[in-house]
Amino acid sequence: MGTQTYAHETITDEKGRELVVKVEGLQKYFGKNHVLKGIDLEVFKGEVLVLIGPSGSGKSTFLRCLNFLEDPTIGEIRVGDVHVTCGSHGNKFKKDVHEIRMKCGMVFQEFNLFPHKDATENVTEGPILVKGEKKEEATRKAHELLTKVGLGERMDFFPSQLSGGQKQRVAIARAMAMDPVLMLFDEPTSALDPELIGEVLKVMKDLASQGMTMIVVSHEMGFSRDVADRVVYMDDGYFIEQGPPSEVFFHPKDDRTKRFLRHILPEKEPEHAKELGIVEVDQELPDPDAVEGPPQGAVGAALDEGNFKDTAIPEIPLSGGPMGETPLPPGDENL
């Protein structure tokens, strides 16, 4: 396992930014299904990390493991100064998990607002119950936050009265009300109508510009390009490739990344796709593995530059993983 990190120990990167998240050797099984196969990650204060990858690659699971909505099977997770060894149990473990949850704000794809509470109550629920704030104080803060996300007019509206975009903005305010050191976004715009995506992304951009540390699972390429410090391509339970958005999006090194981008770029970023010579979604598909003849376009050129001779994907061993450890027997999803 990697180097031990201890609570109370402040770690900084070369720019002097504080370490917010450190994940070492994180693995997750759903029964016999090995979903995360050993993930290491460090995120520093103010960094915006965007996770991309095909469905089933473990992006959401990884995000949910960070605040223990899924119980990771093994690995080490440190958020702020709380350090948890996954797979343990007992009161200390529970307390640490609770603290990590308080430090992480989470925004869900399906909003998950409390339908029986209005926008303000949704936001004040955490501060009042968990932090023991006075109701007036919490309400005042909630109003501030709701105004900030552009819902000053709708503070006493119930979720059923709000559009998807408004709901998601309330959800962001709700997560922010706990003063998190880290915000987790699990495909925050995937359930939204196209015209509502912008308002949510704007709020997220504002958050990022204020120096909030964020981990975002999203295929919004525009957002990633403008805001992300780092893009991680995830596939089959591993981090395949990571780097600045310009690198990962337009000069991907791994062929799986290339193939994935060929799927999503024309849809998400038509302008850039055109620049790169990709015009239609699923161009050269349905079976990209079987592509014969000279590849086309910039991505194709990258393919051509040839660290490999054919386009077939190399087999990834399904058991073991990079850590070389024997897979644990099936764990449980609940804490």
């Binding site: 909505l69 704000g105 869900f108 998950n112 955490g126 968990v130 997560a175």
Partner: peptide, 23 residues
């Protein structure tokens, strides 16, 4: 009650009992 309600409550730090009672 949708599972997401539990998760949302846990994510903002509510305890198991608080989640049950309030959400």
């Amino acid at each position: 009650v949708p599972k997401g309600q539990n998760e949302a409550a846990w994510a903002i730090g509510l305890s198991g009992w608080q989640t049950q009672r309030r959400i």
